[in-house]
Amino acid sequence: MQVEAAARLKEMGYVAVPHLAARNFRSEADYTRLVEAHSGNGVSEALFLGGNPPLFPGPLGESAQLLAHAVLKDSTIRTAFVAGYPEGHPSISEASLADALRRKLDICADRSLEARIVSQFAFDGRAIAAWARAQQGEHPAAAIHVGLAGVTSLTKLIRFAAMCGVGPSIAALRRSAGGLLNAMMDRNPADVLEAMTANYPEPVSPLHFHFFPFGGWEKTLDWFSNYREACSPQVIGQ
């Protein structure tokens, strides 16, 4: 299904970025076949993840193993997105996250893959700004894509945040609910972007955005188009 979806997106003129999670593969052969199938369609970018299941069937348990695998050498995938966590990870220490990111970036450099860091979504603009500043300082060669929740209801945002382990800023979301009517209304990430801008007004290099639309991609695109027109380029990045 993923291969067919990626091929269709490419035919429509979009850049397909398949998500490859190590713990979802039952064997290395399964991973090899999937990469080869995407290469057959000319897919050039992919997001490499460890995956969530604590118990998994195959020998692949972390994204670094996917990046280091020999199949990528002869594949069409030349851009590798790797994960970042502005608010940390619920089951991985900060030191382990930092070490894993360095290893992944080193692997990409050794294999001539363009590495780009894309973050989990969060709702604390100050924390996101601090994380982006730190990553650009430590890894200046890697582009940073800041994860933002798209336009959707507050109740849905809280549910997805709990599912994805976005803990520290859930409390702020719940406080903003106020009442039933406010909880049912759509929320946009303008306050997050404004807090980021206030705390990191002149990034070392451009910050890119990666929206998690949660089904509301049309509303998110419409809102962002209007927001870009209302704001200066310095505020909205790319």
Rank of each mutant, 00 (worst) to 15 (best):
A37H: 07
A37M: 05
S39P: 10
S39W: 06
S39M: 08
G40F: 12
G42F: 05
G42V: 04
G42N: 13
V43R: 05
V43A: 05
S44Y: 00
A46T: 09
L47P: 00
L47I: 14
L49T: 04
P53T: 12
P53Q: 09
L55G: 02
F56T: 14
P57F: 01
P59T: 09
P59Q: 10
L60W: 11
L60R: 07
G61Q: 12
G61F: 11
E62A: 09
S63W: 06
S63V: 04
A64C: 13
A64Y: 03
L66E: 07
L67K: 09
L67S: 06
H69D: 15
H69P: 06
V71K: 11
L72F: 07
K73A: 15
K73G: 10
S75C: 12
I77F: 06
R78N: 04
R78T: 15
F81A: 03
V82Y: 01
V82L: 05
A83W: 00
E87K: 12
G88K: 10
H89P: 03
S91Q: 14
S93R: 10
E94Y: 04
E94V: 02
S96A: 15
L101P: 00
L101H: 00
R102E: 14
R103W: 00
L105A: 05
I107L: 14
I107E: 02
C108Y: 04
D110V: 00
D110F: 00
L113M: 13
E114Y: 01
V118N: 02
Q120P: 01
Q120V: 11
A122N: 11
F123V: 01
F123D: 04
D124Q: 12
G125I: 02
I128E: 09
A129M: 05
A129G: 11
W131N: 04
R133A: 15
R133I: 06
A134C: 08
Q135Y: 04
Q135R: 15
G137L: 07
G137R: 13
G137C: 05
G137V: 03
E138A: 15
A141S: 14
A142L: 09
I144C: 10
G147F: 03
A149Y: 05
A149P: 13
T152L: 01
T155E: 12
T155K: 06
K156T: 14
L157M: 14
F160A: 08
F160C: 01
F160P: 00
C164I: 00
